[in-house]
Computed example of a mutant assay.
Amino acid sequence: MRLVIAPDSFKGSLTAREAAEAIRDGWLSVRPGDDIALAPMADGGEGSLDAFEAAVPGARREPVMAVGPDDQPVLARWLRLPPTPGLPGGTGVVELAATSGLTLMRSGLRPFDAHTFGLGQAIRAALTLGVSRLLIAVGGSASTDGGVGALTAMGARLTDAAGAPVPYGNLGAGKVARVSFDGAVPLPAAGAVVLTDVDNPLLGPRGAAAVFGPQKGASSDAAVRALEGNLASLAAVVPDGARLAETPGAGAAGGVAFGLLAWGATLSPGAPAVAEALQLADTIAGADLVITGEGRFDGQSEAGKAPTQVAALARAAGVPTALVAGAIQASVDAFSASASLTDLAGSTDAALAEPARWARAAGAALAGAR
């Protein structure tokens, strides 16, 4: 058989490459003669830099010192893709998870204070070095600040009723009375594209606070309502904020996508962009089976996550797709087979303690079922 293994990262436990290699090793332990191609994926979240770096020859990582989501310093990297016709300065790829991600919180979850200032610093660094286009992967955020932190780092002025700069986090979003982009870094010549892995709007029952706030420490309905109220206050004062707030994907990364839209960026699903860079459709063509996966396959997975994109490409090529996930919490009817690390290990804690071991077990289980 010829296989393509194209998982996303298993957030906080395995990178996309580590997951792909573990699944491959498990498969080969049962079917050692099969031909396997690895294509680690991403969807605009954690691991996007890795995916673009693997796909584009000559890509170079650039360092940037950033303020992390809990105010602690972070040495992060952004990726510079080489010049191409029409893009003489190349393309900069900035990953929010590297500067403002949930995994960077070292002082406990702080739903009202965590911010995206570091993301703005990385964006500013890439633009200062003259990139012609900017891709901003925003999955994995620790905050619900509506982009207040990032915009401030980029030079925008967000001030309260007294004219003083507001704090970077969600509390600051609720204090904004005036927004000015006059001092903000300008968009690059070929524009800035926010790569999102969800299609949620900023506000409402599917908005940033309601859906993602509990993952970031909003442990009560009252806390979620307070987060929502601060985002709504921000949307009311941002130019054209009401329309931008309703844009599918504006609620991504705690609403940072909304803030970047207000700056002038556009939104695009991340998984198709990464798949195109990887030329994944060509890799899948002629395969007998594709295996994809992620840490948790749930109701959000169909809203732009990597496994859904990989399965769509495989379906278009007439190739069956199997799923490996840390936990499976949604229907897997679209897949020919599936394996859950949690089920194989016996518990979530056991799976998280040895994720590579259970990813190998998943690969072996799928191979044994062929």
Rank of each mutant, 00 (worst) to 15 (best):
A210P: 09
P167Q: 13
A164F: 03
L227Y: 05
G251T: 10
A208Y: 02
V179A: 02
A226K: 14
G249M: 12
A232K: 06
G259I: 10
A235V: 07
S219M: 10
L231H: 11
E228Y: 11
L227I: 12
A226T: 15
L171Y: 01
T152P: 03
T152Q: 15
L261W: 01
A162I: 09
A281G: 14
S233D: 04
R243Q: 14
A250N: 05
D197T: 11
T196Y: 01
G183C: 07
S180N: 07
P272V: 14
D160V: 13
P239N: 12
E276Q: 15
N230V: 02
G183K: 09
A236Y: 11
G213D: 06
A210W: 07
P205F: 03
P269C: 10
A281F: 02
R225L: 13
A208M: 03
V198D: 02
G249D: 06
A177D: 04
Y168G: 01
G217Y: 07
L187R: 13
F212W: 15
P272T: 14
S233P: 00
A271V: 08
T247Q: 14
A275M: 03
K216N: 14
L202M: 10
R243M: 12
G229P: 11
T266M: 10
G155S: 06
G241S: 13
R243V: 14
S233G: 14
L227M: 08
G191Y: 10
